[in-house]
Design a protein around this nucleic acid. Structure first.
Lengths: 342, 342
DNA sequence: CGTGGTCGTGGAATCGATTCCATGGAATCG
DNA sequence: CGATTCCATGGAATCGATTCCACGACCACG
């Protein structure tokens, strides 16, 4: 690697390194001549400042960290995209990390981000408030949580009020005649897993539907557990006639297994998924979803982070969710006798 | 931000910064007593080395850059995931950037990665060899291209031999009776766009099918252009009876518009997509695809990068592709007279 | 008992950029 | 015209960690 330093630029321009630095960082205390010479020299040499050295001295790195639980989850891919675009427009680079829904990898990435002295971190956290999450707070690294929260850790967050969408969904399914709704839950180690489960339980109770605990399967937000959940729920003596999956990947797993079992979604069994993904509208039948805005979530998270970096303590934001009804949950339930058996 | 430096650790341990540094970086020239005291002090203070300062002095940053054209494209999300896992297992952190299929943003990210002095860069490049791509080479930054190449830039690459899968697809469609295959191409500014188009043209010629130029639509690898392509191709006086989309996002766009037009995929029109995405198997009918291994591509790209960083010049690798036949292209073509009109 | 060698250690230089401080020349004012 | 302010500039300190170099302590050998 051929490295060109500010001294090379200064030498070619015939000024000192100090002056070169001033010109290159837009310090007004420079003469037009110096400005021209340094600018020309920098272009001539194709000079790129060493971000390491700059950050070392000025204690800012113009970079933020974004830690998501799974890049392959379209929701988080979209989130990464919007955060990155928002950050870029403010001159920040986003270092994206992937925790793979594993606390261990999350900790490893947080360590790295801390030691790289990023200016701030946006994280969709998992696990409890232990490990590196705690370090983050103790070291006063500007931090914002997205999508999920952590008990006992008080940082600004951007979350979705899942309860509204889930209540709408349960009421919608109840109005179609469903009395037994199967719920494929997220892990209780995540706040979204817990919140959505609580919202589901409350909505089911209020709607006067079956509160049979067997109707809940606890997955891990990954596709395979969606398949497993469907398997378990359909094995019940009195299986559900409708399913609600707590995230898109588990919904994908559920769809795959329902296809394999020969069950027609929307006719034999209703299905609704949390998270609105472009692909869901393309399925046949199109999937009903509980929708919330990733764009808003990403942009607001970054805005909050900027405020935290500036030393303020902004209020947390809760975004709405709402049911979008499509073909996968629009047909009234058939009498049990006329339903196909698998 | 509360920062604890190596001096704090050294002071608490009662040794000099030099000794503390030696202990912490595993230098053998240290006494057991010093080792114990420094280790205890580091834990006591929850010390994290400043990666900036370390990288500044030692000229390695233990990080690599990965630049993809679009994180929201499942193929690249998967690629990011595999590269990241491979890198992590070797102690490297991956800084992921998103070019958004725009040369300008690609250049901006490359600038940033260069100035952060990453140890190496894996990039799925776009555009010609100008701009920052050229700087990369001139500065001898260890670089590996994945998925795509750039004319005139000679760095190790990992690509897919699209020709085999495309030839299989054309032959397969021909055997079902299709004579007019519509092709939704990627942009000719990318090597994959050009290669796949050339492969398609050659295969069509060899199979003795229509070489009508109107049957080719040039898209941009994004969903909207898939929809536009279908629109244009179906407007032809003699429209195609089968479609091949050059990537998954354009296939998604194509599927969306075909649904809207009321055309049944697999029956009214055959459809095959390049890139095997989990979701494609879930569609009804399941989508035939040209499959190639992202896992191999990501892992090999990282292996090559390690070799380049070590000063070697490894051979480029070309991975195979193959047709996977599913329901979207398995029914022989119906006589034109019996087909539905849109 | 003196010399040579090993070994752990601390001081100081270093990486590249930024920034404080002092300097000298030009400009402005009384 | 002398005194004061202003401003561009270069020298030097600085950020935090690594590493070269030299020093002193200790052991061993002749």
């Amino acid at each position: 690697m051929v490295d060109i330093t500010i001294k090379d630029v200064a030498a070619l321009a015939g000024v000192s390194a100090a002056t070169a630095s001033r010109v290159l960082s837009g310090n007004p205390a420079t003469s037009p001549q110096a400005r021209d010479k340094v600018a020309a020299a920098a272009i001539e040499l194709d000079y790129r400042p060493n971000a390491q050295a700059r950050a070392l001295r000025s204690t800012r790195s113009d970079s933020i960290g974004l830690l998501v639980p799974d890049v392959r989850n379209p929701f988080f891919a979209d989130l990464a995209h919007t955060v990155e675009q928002a950050a870029l427009s403010e001159g920040y680079v986003t270092l994206l990390g992937n925790a793979n829904e594993q606390k261990e990898q999350q900790d490893r990435y947080l360590e790295t981000l801390i030691s790289r002295r990023v200016d701030g971190i946006i994280v969709a956290p998992l696990g409890d408030g232990g490990g590196s999450i705690r370090s983050l707070i103790e070291r006063e690294v500007p931090t914002v949580f997205v999508d999920r929260t952590v008990d006992g850790i008080d940082v600004p967050t951007v979350t979705t009020d899942s309860a509204v969408g889930i209540r709408q969904t349960v009421e919608h399914l109840a109005s179609l005649g469903h009395t037994r709704i199967g719920y494929i839950s997220g892990p209780q180690a995540t706040s979204t897993g817990r919140d959505r489960y609580a919202a589901f339980a409350a909505a089911v109770t209020d709607a006067g539907l079956s509160q049979d605990l067997d109707l809940v399967y606890f997955g891990d937000f990954q596709a395979a557990s969606g398949s497993a959940g469907v398997h378990v729920l359909l094995e019940l003596n009195d299986p559900p006639t409708a399913l609600l999956a707590a995230d898109s990947l588990m919904a994908v797993g559920a769809i795959a297994i329902l296809h394999k079992l020969g069950l027609r979604i929307g006719t034999d069994i209703a299905l609704v998924a949390f998270d609105d993904i472009e692909w869901f509208a393309l399925l046949d039948p199109a999937l009903s979803v509980i929708s919330h805005s990733v764009e808003d979530m990403g942009r607001i998270a970054f805005d909050l982070l900027l405020e935290v970096i500036a030393g303020q303590t902004p209020q947390s934001v809760v975004l709405p969710s709402e049911l979008v009804i499509r073909a996968s949950s629009s047909v009234p339930i058939l009498p049990a006798s006329s339903r196909r058996k698998n």
